[in-house]
Amino acid sequence: MRTTVLAAALAATALVPATAPSSGAAPAAHHGPTAQERSRSAPQAAPAGLAPCGAGQLCLWARPDFSGAAQVHELSTVDIESCVPLPAGRSAQALVNRTGRPVTTYQSAECGETGEFETYPGGGTWVPRSPYTVRAFKIWES
C-alpha cells in the first residue's frame, strides 16, 4: 500500500508540463526572456489542479484534496530529524512537500512506527489524499 501511494504521488508530480524544444528561430524584437526561458528558471509550481505550496515549505490540509484549514511549516521553524506533532486537535489528510528534504508523516502523534507512516521526497510531492490521518511529521537531513 505504501509503495502504491508513493507511486501515485510521484505520478502526480509528473503532470507538470515539459517545455517545448526551441524552434531555433529568433524573434524579431526581444524584450526580456521568453515564456520558455522563464519556465526553465522558475521554481517548480503546483501541477495543474493541485494546491500551491511555497518553495521550502511543508503544507498540510485538514481534509483530502487540499481543503479545510491549512498548516505551513518551514525549515527555519522545525528541528531537523525531530518528531513534530501537529497541534492538539489538529490533523491532516492532504500534504505538499517542497522542503527540498524527505519528510515522513506519521499516523501516531509521537512519530511511532507501530502505526502507519510514509516518507515523501522533498523536490515537490503533492499528496491529495493521505492513506491515513497525519498527526506528526519529521523532516530529514537528506
Rank of each mutant, 00 (worst) to 15 (best):
P87N: 10
V84R: 00
I80E: 03
M1N: 11
T19H: 09
Q44M: 06
D79V: 12
T119H: 02
T104C: 11
K138L: 12
A70P: 11
P43D: 09
C59I: 02
G122F: 07
V84P: 00
K138T: 15
Y120L: 13
C53V: 09
V5R: 02
T133F: 02
P17Q: 06
P128C: 02
L10W: 00
R98K: 15
M1I: 15
S67W: 04
G24W: 06
C83S: 04
V84W: 11
G124D: 05
L86C: 06
S91Q: 05
A45T: 13
V16I: 15
G68S: 03
P121I: 02
G100C: 07
P47E: 02
W126S: 02
E110W: 14
A11E: 13
A26G: 04
A55K: 05
L86W: 12
W61D: 03
Q107Y: 00
A9Q: 06
Q36R: 14
T125F: 08
S39V: 03
R90A: 10
T34G: 13
E118C: 08
T133R: 13
A45S: 14
E113Q: 10
A109N: 04
R38T: 09
S23F: 07
A14I: 06
L58V: 09
P21A: 15
R101I: 07
E141V: 14
N97M: 10
P52Y: 07
A62W: 07
F66A: 05
